[in-house]
């Protein structure tokens, strides 16, 4: 072993701002953001589907960008801001994208929906989707096994149009 190396740790203290509240946490270094949210903080709105980054059910916003929380170690995001499905509504008023999912009946079982909603918000922020084909391509990281895709695309289209008017 060489001298002057950084001390290796298996537990670490981190600070995360989750849905607007800064939290001091101690995590085992192998804890994913998804497990931290669900198992440690009881924020179970973010879902574990495949746990391999393929289904998108675990999508959250990390510093405003949509990512797969299952493929992220909590310890690596010390200092970051996280928004989950629980952090979108303002009191009783739903986020417009949440409301649009209800209005367009864009889900059946609802398991993928929190990920779909966070992904939609990320897509709008990125500002790269111009056509329906773009939407389909840029939402392909979110699988819906009930097959509610056609209404999900309508929601994203509407949300995009609204964001362009704003």
């Amino acid at each position: 072993m060489e001298k002057n190396t950084t001390a290796s740790v298996s537990k670490e203290k981190i600070s995360l701002t989750i849905n607007g509240t800064e939290q001091q946490l101690e995590v085992e270094v192998w804890t994913t953001l998804l497990d931290l949210l669900r198992e440690h903080l009881q924020l179970t709105g973010t879902k574990k589907g495949c746990d391999q980054g393929q289904c998108g059910a675990c999508t959250i916003l990390l510093d405003g960008n949509r990512i797969n929380s299952c493929l992220s170690l909590a310890v690596m995001h010390d200092g970051s801001e996280i928004t989950t499905i629980e952090g979108l509504a303002q009191g009783d008023e739903l986020h417009p994208v949440q409301q649009a999912f209800i209005d367009h009946d864009a889900f059946q079982c609802g398991y993928c929906t929190p990920g779909q909603i966070c992904s939609t918000i990320g897509l709008i922020k990125e500002g790269k989707a111009k056509t329906v084909d773009d939407i389909r391509d840029l939402m392909s990281g979110n699988i819906c096994r009930c097959g509610a895709y056609s209404n999900i695309v309508k929601v994203v289209q509407e949300a995009l149009e609204r964001s362009q008017q704003a």
Binding site: E2, T5, S10, E12
Partner: peptide
């Protein structure tokens, strides 16, 4: 996931040192 240990490197030289120091 199997447990592992962790370091956060502050620059490239530290990263290379850390990777050599740990099996």
């Amino acid at each position: 996931m199997r447990p592992f240990t962790y370091t956060r490197a502050k620059d490239v030289a530290a990263a290379v040192t850390d990777i050599r120091a740990n099996s």
